[in-house]
Design a protein around this nucleic acid. Structure first.
Lengths: 197, 197
DNA sequence: TCTCCATATTGACGATGTAAACTTATCTGC
DNA sequence: GCAGATAAGTTTACATCGTCAATATGGAGA
């Protein structure tokens, strides 16, 4: 059992971890199959056996990203808090995740990179979406009338969080420079709702 | 004066036009310096003289994209209509542009590709933003109190439009498939405002 | 122990962005 | 009108990337 085995043992997870680490440091342009393989200490063609192509690896990374995204949002939700506070906490979690991991966030929602028909990716993305969905049930606002009010409320909250996250990320809310934080966090840019407890 | 001149004459604009055309057909992955050069009928290194690098060409394409984006939004704004209608028209214009030119829209807001410190890009983006800004002045809603109410209103509207556009574009609002249109257009997912005419 | 097969390696190919050296046409000053 | 300067395009070359085919390795089951 040498330090450098021919069979890695858990190359699949190791490559995803390497990809996540590369994203944090070099961003999307630095993410390549060869770079991930090199970081794990494996030949450049090894990833092909586990993920068919670059798209496959990126899809796996995106799936892991959605899992972390959901966990990030759930982190601020203490069960006892009011509905109002929990909704705000989830929205803040959404945007804070994007600010903390901008490149991963961009990869997750980039129409080109991941394969959105992948089963685990769909499941993790749906789970992440369900955090906002669960909290937004029964919110009262002017568009929430009729059988589609729930869907419309979800669409609005998700759009708001997603748009804010991306625009803040690309520096559009801070004309002085992309590194500066936006003037107001998202909970100061949300409409008020009536909360049926 | 042959048909095939050594000096193209207007290569800079021709390359941007070629890039836009390639985007419509092949999307972002098909956009490359060499592909644009080939489409114009010029050697693969010719673009280097006008744009320093791929980032330079992409920045020019994004700037043109913002100009078209602003025009798209302004198209629905008839001067006589009510403020309420104009706001809705601008929001619909925002999302419809993204639906009509998804790859260009993605390029415009991708944090990696364009150089957001470029002067014309900043100017065109600011002009595009000003369409929403102008319409949203003086809207009454619960967060619009105080000296920052105007900024918060702009941030909310922009975030809402942008998030909706991106999520709809990547098929997140239509679980059946990315090609299907979302169930509700954005004007049915917006909060109501008080309008000070 | 022997065989099968998933796993990893090596080498190669075409495509891409970029750089440097070179060529061609247009412009400028006389 | 002409000669040098300069802008605009070409050619060649190189490193890197994703992908493929052929090969090597070692563990699992008989």
């Amino acid at each position: 059992m040498t330090d450098r085995k021919y069979h890695h043992g858990d190359l699949k997870h190791a490559l995803v971890a390497a990809g996540l680490a590369i994203l944090e440091v070099d961003g999307l342009p630095g993410l390549s199959l060869r770079a991930c393989a090199a970081r794990v200490g494996v030949s450049h063609a090894a990833p092909k056996n586990h993920f068919g192509s670059l798209k496959g690896l990126i899809t796996a990374i995106a799936a892991e990203g959605f899992a972390r995204h959901a966990a990030f949002m759930r982190d601020g939700l203490t069960e006892g808090a009011s509905r109002r506070d929990r909704l705000r906490a989830a929205m803040l979690g959404y945007t804070r995740f994007a600010a903390a991991h901008p490149h991963l966030f961009e990869l997750m929602f980039s129409p080109n990179y991941p394969d959105f028909s992948d089963e685990t990716l769909r499941r993790n993305a749906a789970d992440s979406y369900s955090v906002l969905r669960d909290i937004s049930t029964g919110l009262d606002w002017d568009k929430a009338a009729g059988p589609d009010g729930q869907v419309k409320t979800e669409m609005m909250l998700w759009s708001l969080a997603h748009g804010y996250a991306l625009l803040a990320m690309s520096g559009q809310f801070s004309p002085g420079g992309a590194t500066k934080a936006p003037a107001f966090p998202i909970d100061q840019v949300m409409p008020e709702f009536g909360y049926r407890e």
